[in-house]
Amino acid sequence: MSENTAKKPRWVFVMEPERCIDCEACMVACSVENEVPLGEHRNWIAKVEKGAFPDLSIAFLPENCHHCANPPCERVCPTGATYRREDGLVLIDYDRCIGCKYCMMACPYDARYVNEEKKAVDKCTFCVHRLDEGLPPACVETCVGGARHFGDLNDPNSEVSKLLATHESYRLYEEAGTEPAIYYIRS
């Protein structure tokens, strides 16, 4: 494949809930990296707890903005502040955002928060500033369990492509038609 026919990247997260230990290192890392105000956060661990003593199970699902290919947040934004970049990242133009919070209503994943310092709505950016420098997202880099993987789905040799090729996976609230970019490996 020559340079100019190379496909645009499709950045995705592939999560391995089986490897997540709910340590929340990803949350702290993200808060520091992205200067997320105290009390808010861009990523979290969803939990599915089942059973009764002593037959218990609990699954940890690492989550952040799903950078939907069909993002309802972008669709409803009245100012165009929320936009989708060429490579699929759903980002916010903080100057343009007036803080109507309509996107927060529209996001099925509750990925957004009001950033009182920026006076705008905010969320996970897939660490776009790091990505543009060729660095992995902060939460991926520090993930103690190795549960978070990030990469280009359009590159068949990427770690994420390989993981998805060899494992069954699912996405959250797929029925919402959001085409989320976070895949979960079924254990």
């Binding site: 669709r75 165009g80 006076k119």
Partner: peptide, 19 residues
């Protein structure tokens, strides 16, 4: 209720059909 009340005019610099 906006975080930036004085910039509400952004609403009128665009027409977002889907919003």
């Amino acid at each position: 209720d906006l975080t930036k009340p004085f910039q509400f005019w952004w609403l009128f610099l665009t027409l977002q059909y889907t919003s």
